[in-house]
Every structure is written in structure tokens, then in C-alpha cells.
Amino acid sequence: MRGNAPQYRLETPRTLADALAKLRAEPGRWRAFAGGTDLMVLLEAGQLKHADYLSLHRIDELKGLVREPSGAWVLGALTTYAEVLEHPELARTFPNLAAAARETGAWAIQNRGTLGGNLANASPAADSVPALLAYDAELELRSASGARWVPHAQFHTGYKTTVLKPDELIARIRLPAAGGNRFHFFRKVGTRRFQSISKVCLAARADLRGGRVIDARLAWGAVGPVTLRSAHLERSLAGLSAADLGDAKRRSALLSALAAEITPQSDVRSTRAYRLKVSENLLGEFLDGLVAFAAGKGGA
């Protein structure tokens, strides 16, 4: 049964300070409402349990995309998928984020859904989340008493849980610049390319210097209770050259190490066995791409 609109409150603070003051004054009463593409679906399903919301759509401090002199990008939490795609330079620097944006929902969802909402909603199947995680994003959490920056890797604590306190908002997302020649890989596997939730998603990147991997990240969606990194595999990749990566023995060792690092489950969207197999295939694709990259441009 659809939720009844009159039972909910939706207020529109005009400034960040107003919103944070309200969150502070009545702890736990108000929750954020951004693009509504998760919340309105719950409302429709009669599953929106919480009653009082603050619509963030007027708050300029939560909008905008800025490139810092260091090459890092800082994105307001209200940045929509469409806005990510409208910035060619951002999309070039962080192609996995652009790929995730382009395959999130479809055009109308991309115009409304926000990165802050995707992070705070904390679904393990969220698509921009692995992309941000693999780029070592940092999240600025703001409350009436100030700001704290939290590494993305520490933000999600378990299934649908985060470190966000009831009086805090996600204000900004910071993406540091690459530390070397960067290879990027993003692949979402769902029932169809658009308007489908991931069965498995891999966002990965590897930074190379002098023909060797100096730093790698593999961030997985929908294969555990949270978006997770395969830290052991990441470490195993460090120091490898194109020749090392192309070695068949090494490759199969890397592939067989994956199962210990992810915890896919069977649910309405897929089965554990399918997710495991597809994850292995995605890792294989990533390695193939990385070998080609390291042997070519990245090896320089």
C-alpha cells in the first residue's frame, strides 16, 4: 500500500546552517531528502518508516564540482549522475565514476539521483559507490559543530549502516588525483544495461610507474554486505610488470585468490555461484586490460 503523503513532513531549509541547526535541535527527528529516487520508491511501497525530512535541494553549499590546484576534485553531495556526465574533464579523470553514472538507472533517474544519496543509502549494490571507493574518495561530514573528513573506506560499516551521525550530512566528496599512469576498469553486470540493479559490479584502477603497478584498488558491488575492496589482491598486484601479469601461473593464482575476498550471497537478483563466477570473469577482464595497458602506454 502506498504511503500517505500527509503523514510525512518535508521542509526546505535554504542554507546548510539552517539544515544543520534543525538536525542538531531535534536529534533523530529529521532525515535528509536529496533526489528522492530511493526515498520515493519506499514511500510508494508503503515502506517509508521515518516521517520527517529536510529537502536539501535549495542548499547551494552542497552543490557544485570544483577542481583543486592539486588535481583533486571536490563534488557537492547533491551532484547528480547527469552532472557527472556533463563534465568531460571529470569524466576523463575518473572514467569509472562516469561509467557508473551512465549505467545508473536511466536518463530521468540520472537527472535526479545524487552521489550523496547513493552513499548514504548504503546499498551494497550501489554503482557509484565502488567507483568512488576505488578512487580513494574522502567524504566531508558536516554537523552544527563543524566538519570531519572520513575516508570512504571507513564510511560504510555493515549492511545499510554508516558512520553518519543523526545530526550529520554528507556535504562533499573529494577525489584525489592519480599517483601515476592510471588504468581504469568498470563493469556492471545486471539483467540489462540500463534501469537494472547490479548482480555484480567491479570498479578497479591500477597506478603504474616505470612499467610496474605501484598501487591498485578493486572495489566490488553486490558481492557482500557492503561495497568492499579485495585488499589482499590489491597487495598482490603491487610491483608487478606487464610480463609478470601476463604469466599464466600468476594469473590463475590471482583468480583463485578472489573467492576468499568476497562473500556473495543468493538473493532475489542472483545466486552465490553465479556471482562468484561472474566476479572471477570480471577480474580476468580487468587483468587482461591491465596487461595490455602496462605493455603499452602505461609501461612508459
Binding site: 518535508l10 528522492g36 529516487t37 520515493m40 537527472n111
Partner: peptide
């Protein structure tokens, strides 16, 4: 009524949106 089908698509400031997912206040 949940953003999947697009039957409710309108333009908001020129951009297509699912009007079933937009609260009136916005």
C-alpha cells in the same frame, strides 16, 4: 509508480524526470 517505467516522465527545467519520484515541494 516507482521510477522504473517512465510513463510519468515530464520535463523539469528542461530535463526529463519521473514525476512519480518528485515530491511537490521540490
Amino acid at each position: 509508480g516507482e521510477g522504473e517505467c517512465g510513463a510519468c516522465t515530464i520535463l523539469m527545467d528542461g530535463e526529463p524526470v519521473n514525476s512519480c519520484l518528485v515530491p511537490l515541494a521540490q
